[in-house]
């Protein structure tokens, strides 16, 4: 299965026959995570040693639901009733409704704090294998809560955390000096990659090193372009 096979699933969600792949800024990164990187299994959702993927940027989760469906976490029929009254799938994901969804998100700036806490909780229980991946958007970084988490995780060398920032340059005031530098100055290892290049995304994710949290800035098309 390739990411191309996820697209019909997105169409089921959106009802839109003619969307460009670029309409979904997170699609390729999500695919690489679920297809190549994350140690997660829909048959063992409660495995305490699973990797954790936290979608902090909960807006526009069509690509997320489609990838979860493609990987067997949820029935494909669910995709036909997005945000319906009885649908488990809404415009922001709910972890109590959707198998495999680690956090309920939507309000921006909550995932990284939850991810830091998750990493600390796993470490306190001696679970040193799982990594915690948190996906954010460049505009989401406007929220100050992220910077509390970035500073603390960097200062304490919380090296089981990987942040992925999808950069489609949608932050109103931009990030002069770049996004990666915001993390690097706090002691994170940081790499910026082409967010549509699967091998580059995978390589970026695998660059996490001991002693520091890691960020991958995945650059995609400018929003609205």
């Amino acid at each position: 299965m390739t990411v191309l096979e996820v697209e019909p699933l997105i169409t089921r969600l959106t009802g839109d026959e003619k969307h460009a792949p670029s309409a979904f800024s997170t699609l390729d990164v999500l695919w690489v995570l679920y297809d190549r990187v994350l140690r997660v299994d829909p048959r063992r959702l409660d495995d305490p040693d699973r990797d954790r993927f936290l979608l902090s940027k909960g807006h526009g989760p069509a690509a997320y639901y489609a990838v979860l469906a493609a990987k067997g976490f949820l029935p494909h029929e669910w995709l036909d009733d997005l945000a319906g009254a009885e649908s488990p799938l809404g415009h922001h994901p709910d972890r109590l409704r959707v198998p495999g969804v680690e956090i309920s998100s939507g309000s921006l700036g909550h995932g990284l704090g939850l991810g830091v806490g998750t990493a600390l909780g796993l470490r306190a229980q001696g679970r040193l294998e799982p990594r915690v991946y948190v996906l954010l958007g460049d505009a989401e970084l406007d929220e100050g809560s992220n910077h509390e988490a970035i500073a603390y995780a960097g200062a304490t060398g919380l090296d089981s955390v990987t942040a992925v920032v999808i950069d489609n340059r949608s932050a109103s005031h931009g990030w002069p000096g770049g996004i990666a530098s915001r993390f690097a100055v706090h002691g994170w290892t940081a790499v910026t990659v082409d967010g549509r290049d699967h091998d580059a995304v995978e390589a970026g994710l695998r660059q996490a090193a001991e002693g520091a949290p890691h960020v991958v800035v995945a650059v995609v098309e400018t929003k609205g372009s």
Partner: peptide, 19 residues
């Protein structure tokens, strides 16, 4: 540190792992 949003976020994350 003096980071109350993170304090609660971390508490939530810890609880998600069973603490």
């Amino acid at each position: 540190g003096i980071r109350e949003q993170l304090m609660i976020g971390v508490a939530g994350g810890l609880a998600l792992t069973g603490l």
